[in-house]
Computed example of a mutant assay.
Amino acid sequence: MSAKTNSGRFFEDFRLGETIRHATPRTVTTGDVALYNGLFAPRFAVQSSDEFARRIGYARAPLDDLLVFHVVFGKTVPDISLNAVANLGYADFRFLKPVYPGATLNAVSEVIGLKENSNRKTGIVYVRSRGFDETGEPVLDYVRWVMVRKRDETAAAPAEQIPELPKAVPASALGLACPRIDRGAYDAALSGSPHRFGDYAAGEKIDHVDGMAVEEAEHQIATRLYQNTARVHFNLFAQTKDRFGKRLVYGGHAISLARALSFNGLGNAFHIAAINGGRHVAPLFAGLTVFAWSEVLETAALPGRDDVGALRLRTIATKDRPCADFPLKNGDDYDPAVILDLDYWVLLPRS
């Protein structure tokens, strides 16, 4: 009977260059949207209103970009990170097509890097994962790296290779998942912010002011919503015996909270076009309150587009630490309150 169950892959099970098709396809419905909205309260008008979205050029309100990511990510977990210690980071992350309720998403991953850790108990697995819709067209493409336990500490490690990854997605590659919009029809009163692309400048820092607590039930419901089965988020029996003694909050939960909080100050940044890099600096646990602030790293015009422009943002999320003084580093180390450091591109309407 045990041969019929899946205990997940351990570090020594991965092979460089292997391709993994993930189960199971997932049709994302308006019910999923409602639950996601109830958990994170994102307020961006394009994803909130069919009518607003249609007026500016979408077929209807698209799925929240991060909901698309979490669903695709969740597909990869049973094959990549069921035995993970922690998800460590992201790079070269691009949204490629607008996704609407009713789309069916599936995922495929390629192992592009492997590195055993010096303790020989764990290793780092690098994968490029792609999400596809029911037509077979790609909607999402990203690299992530994750620390995975070894089944046998004495097992020989796979050949080591660390992939070279771009430091940022170029502006010329942005905007594929955003149709040309009618900027004249973009209603600032309804969107909740008067600030468009030209109102932001490199070097500007924005405290998003609000905080949102993480509840034990909510972070587990959210992770189940994505069919993410990683044991560190659910198995309290096992986690009480681990180093933290409790369940870890899925790292994507912190990203969604920070994104929702960023509406206060970036209310017209309606689309995440790409993620250049991201780091989960420290674990997040239920009972803590997440705050966030952002810095505009650069602004960019998109080739052939006069309807939208791109801001490269660095968003920092903290636990139990308001961000009026923009906490980030203490010397060479991160401030102890920092949990997330995310570098990404967003699109805003031009004036």
Rank of each mutant, 00 (worst) to 15 (best):
H219L: 11
E134P: 01
A91I: 11
L66N: 03
F197K: 03
L284D: 04
F285H: 05
T122D: 12
V146E: 06
S2F: 11
A222L: 00
E153S: 05
G203V: 06
E215S: 04
F10Q: 06
F40H: 04
F270N: 04
A189L: 13
F14N: 05
Y126C: 13
R128S: 10
V71R: 01
P158G: 14
N106H: 14
S7Q: 10
V28G: 04
A274D: 07
E137T: 13
A159V: 15
A310D: 05
W145I: 10
L257D: 05
R43Y: 12
K150T: 15
E51V: 15
K150F: 10
G175M: 07
A292L: 07
K97V: 15
V108F: 06
A254V: 09
T223V: 02
I255E: 00
G278Y: 01
V346C: 03
Q220K: 00
G131P: 04
V125H: 01
V33A: 03
G211R: 00
N276G: 10
N119P: 04
F270V: 12
K246T: 15
A177E: 14
G309W: 03
A86C: 11
G123A: 11
A41D: 11
G245Q: 03
V125W: 01
L288S: 15
L176C: 14
L63R: 01
V125D: 06
P170V: 10
G136D: 11
G211N: 04
K115W: 10
K97W: 06
P336T: 15
E160V: 15
A282T: 10
V33C: 07
A217M: 05
N119G: 13
V143K: 00
G38D: 11
G203P: 01
S109T: 15
A238Q: 09
C323F: 07
N37A: 13
Y334Q: 05
C323M: 05
T19V: 15
V209K: 02
R120N: 12
R305Y: 12
G278E: 08
E216K: 01
Y142V: 07
H195T: 07
T318A: 03
R26I: 13
L236S: 09
V209G: 02
G113L: 04
F132E: 13
R312I: 11
G203K: 00
S191E: 06
Y200L: 15
N330I: 12
A173G: 03
L225F: 05
E18C: 07
Q161C: 12
L297V: 14
L288R: 02
R144C: 08
I181F: 05
G278D: 05
A86N: 03
R120W: 13
D50Y: 06
A317G: 08
D65N: 07
G8W: 09
F263L: 08
H70F: 14
A107F: 06
H195Q: 09
F52Y: 09
A155Y: 08
F44T: 06
K246G: 07
R15N: 09
T122R: 00
P283Q: 07
F40A: 08
H195P: 04
S193D: 15
R9D: 08
T30P: 01
I255S: 02
